[in-house]
Design a protein around this nucleic acid. Sequence first.
DNA 1: GATTAAACGAGACGGTACGTCGGGTCTTATT
DNA 2: AATAAGACCCGACGTACCGTCTCGTTTAATC
Lengths: 205, 205, 205, 205
Amino acid sequence: MTPRGRPRDPSADDRILAIAGRILLQKGIAELHIDEVAAEAGVARTTVYRRWPTKDHLAVAVIADMQNEVPIEPSDDDPATAITEWLNTIAAGLNAIRHAGTTTTIDPRSAASVAELAAAAARHPDIGSQVREQFERRHQRAVRAIEHAVSIGRFPTTVDAEVLVDQLVGPLYYRVLITGKPVDPGYVDRLVRQGLPDAPTGKAP
Amino acid sequence: MTPRGRPRDPSADDRILAIAGRILLQKGIAELHIDEVAAEAGVARTTVYRRWPTKDHLAVAVIADMQNEVPIEPSDDDPATAITEWLNTIAAGLNAIRHAGTTTTIDPRSAASVAELAAAAARHPDIGSQVREQFERRHQRAVRAIEHAVSIGRFPTTVDAEVLVDQLVGPLYYRVLITGKPVDPGYVDRLVRQGLPDAPTGKAP
Amino acid sequence: MTPRGRPRDPSADDRILAIAGRILLQKGIAELHIDEVAAEAGVARTTVYRRWPTKDHLAVAVIADMQNEVPIEPSDDDPATAITEWLNTIAAGLNAIRHAGTTTTIDPRSAASVAELAAAAARHPDIGSQVREQFERRHQRAVRAIEHAVSIGRFPTTVDAEVLVDQLVGPLYYRVLITGKPVDPGYVDRLVRQGLPDAPTGKAP
Amino acid sequence: MTPRGRPRDPSADDRILAIAGRILLQKGIAELHIDEVAAEAGVARTTVYRRWPTKDHLAVAVIADMQNEVPIEPSDDDPATAITEWLNTIAAGLNAIRHAGTTTTIDPRSAASVAELAAAAARHPDIGSQVREQFERRHQRAVRAIEHAVSIGRFPTTVDAEVLVDQLVGPLYYRVLITGKPVDPGYVDRLVRQGLPDAPTGKAP
DNA sequence: GATTAAACGAGACGGTACGTCGGGTCTTATT
DNA sequence: AATAAGACCCGACGTACCGTCTCGTTTAATC
């Protein structure tokens, strides 16, 4: 079926997301106003609403758009290195949100962004499932990578991959959302060092 | 100096907190309206505002009121048992929030409550520090308990207590806030089994 | 020069006018939406706009289409009879509008249609003059008929024909638009009986 | 019952009505925007909506406020004089509306104001009945005055007072709303001269 | 017992964003 | 060149909720 009618302006999507992203990062969801976004994107308010029915939907789209698809694949290389890199990317994403403001110190607005995203997800069922799906995909990729590492003998077979991923990623969010403590490469190192199990010993005779 | 004038009605505080608590748990902060709270508490709106200057302040007071002070103390008993119990209490708290609604299934509003609390904390510096302080106290108690266990030889001295606590508690919040997966005793067991290090191997003959 | 390209669908005009007429009578101009008209007429919105540049223009076209050209001609017959008939036709037109709805009782939407037509006429100069021209033609025909009746001695020469017509027609609109009272044959009779002057007396020797 | 809570600012009503009146007269209901009224009245938009739930309600209130209560009382003086004066006041009211703009010539916006008032009345049943009630009162006063004149022998007993009033007032509205012709003292004179019946002749035996 | 000062109930108020609605224009492919 | 479809711009609407304000009305503690 051929599309009928005037086609949507694809550049509008980009402009809206870009503007909304900037505002969201700088000022949080509370200060993200559709009027402002539309105006700065050079677009009518209705054009925004045609694409995202709600401010929350827009915000989530922005965040999703921002979430760099963190790649982690089953590999025969050293798993610790890959995992560290992976975690650092996630942390960087959280810090991007967090440090988007002007201050370099711990920016409370960081929490706001992530937390309000979660809140928005909670308010709208459709958003919730979308967001959870996205995180689930990421989660499963990590799980598979770890299981592969187990299968090639880099981790003991007793590893609970699912929980392990939670214990690596969870603390990042916990710090950002709840305790407000920093999440930096040094912390990631501590996470990995303590979280990852040692390689199975018994390979000697 | 003795106070003059009509004294505050202490029962008002209780009623307001109770109503606000119920609403907050059932519907999240977004649906928590001062008007509604006041009306249901049989109180004028001013009476609410006189006590808590802001909706956010009220919400935080409610949450703080709800936070069961989870006790964990340095002890010579088996640390794994104590920690499991402690985690289960926290999880129960999160689930209390989560299951406050009518449905027994995973209630997305759980995220709303916790996340929006975090968001509120981010909006108001004073709330933020108060909340963080509270969590910090809890955190530090757990850290001390673990360090004690190390000192009496139940855990290896290489343990990074701070990170360990993050890896035990963080996944709970991560699941509730981000992935929406269940947080139950079974999960806590897996957390503990994998998170806690083995006791130092008997170096005696 | 022969027109090129696809010719206009003449049936579209009819369908649009019909639908628009029905809606206009039933719900007034405020509820007359181009989208709805187009949809019900099985036509694209552009097709409507190509024919009538404005909702008001369409509405006026509809009304004009509806306005039964009320005939009244100079005649040597009894003028009272002719005038009564003429007024009843006008009244019937107003009542057609008025009773277009479902209820038989006095329908306030009647006023809406006529009044909003007047309002539309006021908004668009071109519509205004068109509408006024139409009414002026009708008015003048009546005036000439009355003047003829005077000239053949059916009415005294003192009659102010212009004002007389106003006093016969005006009350109809006044009732429909302002006071909302009924306009029926009985009322028309009263209008005529009181409004028309007696024949000149001097026929005696 | 004593009024409770903060009392309404009565001056707000006045200011709002004044501003709205000015705008309504100058630009018609279509250009009457609540935002503008509120801003110019130095009042929040909500304050306007608290008093009049709709733009239409406000407009009607304005018109009603403007409708100088035209006094006409049963009297033993010459009824023609009283009626002429009465009609001139009404005409002046219509002309006030009509000539509120800058031009002195026939201002099509006049029709707009009155017509749209009628339209608004038609859209909202509550407004409709209110408006009709007001006009009914005026109408009845005139009817009673005329009946009194009949009773003291100034008019023949055959007069249909109700219709007579319609034939005096109706043309004014008819001209303003439909034909757009002028309504001035000269026209009122013609109306009266032709509309009013002569005094009963035969009082001699 | 009168006074006084603060809490209280009620509700108006200023402010701000929201999401909706409808009008009229523009763009694309189709007939 | 008309048509169907639908995106687009624009601007007003009425709603909702926040937090403040201003009344008149209690309610103790103090004089």
